[in-house]
Amino acid sequence: MHDVIFVNRDFLAAGLLATLQISAISIVCGTLIGAVVALLRYLRVPFAARFCALYVGLIQGAPLLVVLLFCYFALPALFGYKTTAYWATVLSFSVFIGAYLAEDIRAGLQSVSPKLTQAALACGLTMPQVLRLVVLPIGVRSVIPPIISQYVRLIKFTSVASIISVQELTGNALLVNARVFEPATILSFVAIVYLIVCQAVSLFGRWLNARFAVRT
């Protein structure tokens, strides 16, 4: 029964690699989007902040699958461009996680006491310098746990990409199953792999927090 996994190990490993790749790219892009949106809202930049609030509200009310289908079917239809399932996935995941990260990062930025900002200004630092050297470092480091848990959530979400035939772990596992029909073994294996990856990232997050969290 376990031969199924061993025999198909290369194919499944390729799926896992794709899962990790998609996760990594989406995490990087999503974090960038989240940081920019968080800053714009924190600074209350006129017009941009309002637009960002709309973006966050829209994404947070929508299921990931629907955002994915929208990016894969609806947008190309509307604008007449072609896209691959892979890039539609990366785009929708980045946009999706960006909205949630933006809120977490914004909370971190707002947790920096205004008196500390005043003290930094009193030293002769300009506002951009204060943001770069004081508010951002402290703000981000104080929300490491929520950020890591969003990353773990994203890794789990990559399974949804299988629905539009992206060849990540879940997709490849289902393809193998379609051929050999051993769902119990295959799905258990897949579940265990996700479990290991998620726990590893969570553990890394705990170490990161212990090492870098700002104590006041």
């Binding site: 008196k115 500390l116 005043q118 003290a119 200004l121 030293c123 002769g124 470092p137 402290i138 700002v214």
Partner: peptide, 28 residues
């Protein structure tokens, strides 16, 4: 900022940068 570089301020609640050690606080 230029003016504030010439006039220092000490606050009731100290307001040291919590993410930097004492030396780096004075260096920033």
């Amino acid at each position: 900022p230029k003016l504030r570089a010439k006039i220092g301020m000490v606050f009731q609640s100290f307001e040291l940068y919590p993410h930097l050690c004492a030396l780096e606080n004075v260096m920033l």
